[in-house]
Nucleic acid binder design. Structure first.
Length: 663
DNA sequence: TCGCCAAGACTTTTT
DNA sequence: GTCTTGGCGA
């Protein structure tokens, strides 16, 4: 009898999908049908094992992956799957924290600070502590705090072996208390508090551990320590945990991801069933062999023998341009050649690079040649100034205690309120033991009669005006629909005039505001709170790639330009990896650290395995960096077999020539 | 307080 | 090369 759930799976995939209860570790090479296995497993549990959907939690790393999985599973099973907990780690944790806020130091309507907000708050903490921002850059202090949180370390638990670490600890402590007064959590907190909550409250832990009979995890190699602990707690009772990942594709170490969680899993669950998915449905054997030549140099992993039934395929083509212009020229000329032949369309091609800065020259070359192209993930919609402005206005209306938003929008557009006035407001509010937002609202209500009036100085009137404005919005929040509130705020502050100066840039910015308004329209029924939460947790990559899913007319097809990191989910017939120079790929900052070099190899590996038919490795003899020219050195990563005849050839390459001098 | 100019920085960016 | 930041004058 035909079985649509299992028939089209290969033996390894079927083994994984139908595995017995317990712990299952699926190591899935690139293009081996990882998503398919995960969705079929979910469908199998629900449809064949009669597991109710609400007994299952399945976590992914992107909203897009979660949405896709939900759609596919609901198409595969007869049962209704509404009760399933399916989403990103962060969204699942946000839900958990809102439900259990009684046991937490914030209320259930907490706001979520994104990385920009985090950095703003770090800066404020540093100023308050009078720490020199030249010596300790806020970005790096922020990174240190974030890393500590990913390792589940609180402000009193971080190491203070030297002055720098001590500075970080002090900033961390103040930063943390500032989050509390803002009733806010940051991205990292969602995971940290989630793990802490379950660790320290046995009753709550048991509640969820008994609820979730099955725990499923996607992209397991990119979990951090907090996520790992979370998974342990959630599966602590029923012990049914099914994880899918590939340690060779772990490329987010700098954000706390630790591929060694795969090893940890094997150690913590010695009885786990380990299944390797090695049949690749994407690439030719030549490409897979090249990829293997790169990745086999890494340690602490399970070796995999990726194979393809697609045959050897074309040789990998290497190209050394004289400079970066020649590099871009080669890419564009090659693609132009194919497009002239009519057999290929622009969307068959992708150009991948290590750093975003490399895209500029390539873009110019495409523009010059008149070939349509688009960038993936370069300009983050939610990171745009105008988008962030509006979000902060809305956040302030939702939660006037949000000091980060207040500070941002109090002078947008400029209304005569500057640094000094804000400082006075903060000091006055501090003294009264309330937030600046509350003090501002009081000023708006009582004007000169407010106790804060004399403490502000010259601009008290301006501040009171803004406070009254904010108070009005807060009242309107209850009466108007989300979109009407949105429009009202824009109108009240004259935002369109401010942002749209009729230049191309101004028009573009205003269009972004309108795009945000369209998004708000989808949340008319759910309201402001949910809209804001969604904005915090649904970001960037999700929205951009959605357009890819619905390719429009043929003539809009274009070449894709993207960083190697952004390439992870994608595949193309022909892939160009450019900038194959020591210092760029592998990146110079990785040179001295073997773990970092291993990550560069994984990044390269991810890039190689995106190619279905044809791979090009391109480099330049010299390239301009920040104005003047540098000579590159084609070391480690250019030693790669182009014919696939021997995957060990990459290791046996002659030693690299010494780096050439710079002119 | 705001807007302009010069100086300095500059890997990657699932949430 | 280009974006952000900080200092200074109007």
């Amino acid at each position: 009898m035909a079985d649509f759930l299992l028939d089209d799976l290969n033996p390894q995939q079927r083994l994984a999908v139908t595995a017995a209860d317990g712990q299952v570790l699926v190591l899935a090479g690139p293009g081996s049908g990882k998503t398919r296995v995960l969705t079929r497993r979910l469908a199998y549990l629900i449809d064949r094992k009669n597991v109710p959907a609400y007994d299952i939690i399945a976590v992914t790393f992107t909203n897009k992956a979660a949405r896709e999985m939900e759609n596919r599973v609901s198409n595969l099973v007869r049962a209704n799957i509404d009760g399933i907990w399916l989403g990103t780690f962060h969204a699942m944790c946000a839900r958990l924290l809102r439900r259990e806020s009684a046991s937490l130091p914030f209320t259930s309507n907490f706001v979520i600070f994104d990385s920009d907000d985090q950095e703003t708050l770090v800066k404020r903490a540093m100023r308050e502590l009078k720490i020199d921002e030249k010596m300790h850059r806020p970005a790096s202090v922020h990174a240190a705090i974030s890393a500590a949180k990913n390792d589940l370390l609180g402000p009193t638990e971080v190491q203070t072996r030297n002055y720098r670490e001590e500075v970080v600890a002090r900033v961390y402590a103040l930063y943390e208390s500032m989050l509390r007064t803002n009733n806010a959590v940051d991205f990292d907190d969602l995971l940290l508090w989630g793990a802490k909550l379950l660790r320290e409250n046995p009753a709550i832990r048991e509640k969820y551990a008994s609820k979730f009979h099955h725990v499923l995890v996607d992209e397991f190699q990119d979990t951090n320590l907090a996520q790992y602990e979370l998974l342990q707690h959630l599966s602590s009772l029923h012990q049914n945990i099914f994880v899918v990942g590939d340690e060779d594709q772990s490329i987010y170490r700098w954000r706390g991801a630790d591929y060694r969680n795969v090893l940890r899993f094997e150690k913590d669950f010695p009885k786990c069933e380990k299944i390797l998915l090695e049949q690749n449905y994407r690439s030719t054997q030549v490409i897979l062999d090249a990829a293997r030549g790169v990745i086999d140099q890494n340690h602490n992993r399970t070796p995999k023998h990726l194979f393809s039934e697609r045959g050897a395929g074309n040789k990998i083509i290497k190209y050394d341009g004289v400079d970066d212009h020649a590099e871009a020229g080669f890419v564009v000329d090659t693609i132009a050649g194919y497009l002239g032949g009519k057999k290929s369309k622009a969307s068959d091609f992708a150009v991948m690079y290590r750093t975003n800065a490399q895209s500029r020259l390539i873009e110019e070359a495409f523009m010059h040649a008149g070939i349509p192209y688009h960038l993936v993930g370069a300009q983050r919609f939610y990171g745009r100034r105008e988008v962030k402005d509006i979000i902060c206005f809305l956040r302030l209306v939702e939660n006037p205690a949000d000091e980060v938003s207040l500070q941002r929008v109090v002078g947008v557009p400029p209304r005569g309120i500057g640094e000094k006035t804000i400082q006075n407001l903060q000091a006055a509010a501090n003294q009264a033991g309330i937030s600046s937002g509350e003090a501002l609202l009081d000023l708006g209500r009582s004007n000169e009669k407010s106790v804060f009036w004399p403490l502000i100085g010259r601009s008290a009137g301006l501040l009171a005006d803004f406070g009254a404005q904010l108070a009005e919005w807060c009242t309107l929040k209850e009466k108007l629909s989300l979109v009407n509130l949105f429009e009202r705020i824009l109108l009240d502050v004259g935002y369109e005039n401010y942002i749209n100066d009729q230049t191309d840039e101004g028009i573009d910015r205003w269009e972004n505001v309108e795009e945000l308004k369209r998004l708000a329209l989808d949340f008319q029924e759910r309201g402001l709170t949910e809209f804001l939460q969604n904005l915090a947790l649904v970001s960037d990559q999700d929205t951009i790639e959605d357009q890819e899913e619905q390719p429009q007319a043929e003539d809009t097809s274009s070449v894709t330009l993207l960083t190697l990191h952004a390439a992870k989910w994608l595949e193309y017939r022909q892939v160009f990896i450019v900038g194959m120079d020591e210092g760029i790929l592998p990146h110079s900052r990785s040179r001295d650290d073997p773990e970092e070099m291993a990550e560069e190899r994984r990044l390269f590996y991810v890039g190689i395995t995106r190619a279905k038919d044809q791979l090009y490795l391109v480099r330049a003899e010299r390239r301009s960096t920040f104005g003047d020219y540098d000579y590159g050195d084609p070391r480690a990563f250019c030693r790669i077999s182009t014919t696939g005849s021997s995957s060990t050839r990459a290791n046996a390459a002659p030693p690299a020539e010494p780096a050439r001098k710079r002119i």
